[in-house]
Structures are given as structure tokens and as C-alpha cells.
């Protein structure tokens, strides 16, 4: 109803009728009244809901494993070379099978700018930017994440972004636990002009 401005319908000669009876104001009021009883778009993070990011989301770094459960990384240090802010430190070593593996693989999350160049440059598709986005900390030391925790991180999501039911856990380092794998599409409730 509000899309078709009532004033436009009335020809210019009769505009004064609309002005006298405040058609424009009533138009506005009806619009806000409609909004008042439409579903609100607030995502109740962290209390009730949580956002599951898109697959292309660039969050916390993650190191992938191959089908045997081995670390895919061969410690070629290409990621450390291409990183624009020098936040990746790799120290290679030779494991019992004679393969080159990272002894140290530290990512400084505080310095990272989440450009994803490490992901692009990796020949083994070992390093990736995953879906985790809750890792704030009180000290910058805690934000330097080592190899073993990078291997434990959640990878990329499969579904498109959605809002899922979640629970806030203040005790466990203030994390928000998702309670279902896929939820509703948040964009569904956004009013857009066609």
C-alpha cells in the first residue's frame, strides 16, 4: 500500500485535498504500524540465536587433515611468505616417515587481516579460513594460536548462512553453543523494495 504513494494518484490540481487531510502523514503512520507488527529482524545473539556463516566466510584459521588423519601441511612456508602482515610463523621438521611437516605453525590472530592469501597460496590446501568467529581475548598472547589448536578448529560450513538456535555459556570462556546445524534464513524477514 505504501509503495503506491496516495498523493501521486491524485492529480496536482487536487493535491490540497491530500494536504488538508494529511494523507502523507497517514501514509507514514500506516507504514510504521505495519512494521510494528511485522517480525523483528533482531538476531538474539548471544542469548538465543547464533549466525552460521556462509561458506565463503573468512574466520579463524584452520589446518586441514588428509584422509589418513595426517596434517596436510608440508611446511613449505608459502603462506608465511605471502602474508601481508607477517602473522604466520612456520618451522619445518622431518617426521618419522621422512615427510616435511610443521614443527611450529603459529598464527597471530591479532595481526591477521583475514585477506585469505595464505589459503590461496597453499599448494596442499592445508591452511584455510574457517567459520569460527568467537575468539576474542583479554591478552594478545592468547591470540597467537599454535599448530595443534589450529588442527582442532571447525572448518568451513556447507550450508548458506542462517540463524540457528543457540545457548550462551558464560562459564566456558563465554562461548555460544549452536544447538542445531541449520536454521532460518535471516534475509527472509528484511523488507526490501522490489
Amino acid at each position: 500500500m505504501y509503495n503506491e504513494n496516495a498523493l501521486n494518484k491524485i492529480s496536482r490540481d487536487h493535491r490540497w485535498i491530500g494536504v488538508t487531510f494529511f494523507l502523507d502523514l497517514i501514509n507514514g503512520l500506516s507504514l510504521t504500524f505495519k512494521y510494528m507488527f511485522s517480525r523483528s529482524v533482531t538476531m538474539q545473539y548471544p542469548d538465543r540465536e547464533k549466525w552460521v556463516p556462509y561458506p565463503r566466510h573468512r574466520g579463524h584459521h584452520v589446518l586441514r587433515r588428509d584422509e589418513n588423519g595426517e596434517n596436510k601441511c608440508v611446511a613449505c612456508e608459502l603462506c608465511a611468505k605471502i602474508c601481508p602482515c607477517n602473522c604466520i610463523t612456520v618451522v619445518p621438521y622431518e617426521d618419522e616417515n621422512g615427510k616435511r611437516r610443521p614443527l611450529v605453525y603459529d598464527v597471530d590472530m591479532a595481526r591477521c587481516l583475514y585477506c585469505g592469501l595464505c589459503e590461496d597460496s597453499c599448494p596442499e590446501e592445508a591452511i584455510a579460513l574457517g567459520s569460527v568467529f568467537e575468539y576474542s581475548s583479554y591478552t594478545s598472547e592468547e591470540l597467537v594460536v599454535g599448530r595443534d589448536s589450529l588442527l582442532e578448529m571447525d572448518g568451513k560450513t556447507e550450508q548458506p548462512g542462517s540463524v540457528v538456535k543457540a545457548r550462551y555459556l558464560p562459564s566456558a570462556q563465554s562461548t555460544v553453543e549452536a544447538q542445531e546445524s541449520s536454521g532460518y534464513d535471516w534475509w527472509r524477514f528484511i523488507h526490501r523494495k522490489d
Binding site: Y35, R39, S40, T42, Q44
Partner: peptide, 9 residues
Amino acid sequence: IAGHIQQRM
């Protein structure tokens, strides 16, 4: 009311 008119809570 402010919230719901602006589609917030």
C-alpha cells in the same frame, strides 16, 4: 514501541 517500529526488539 521504538524497537518494533524499527523492526528491532
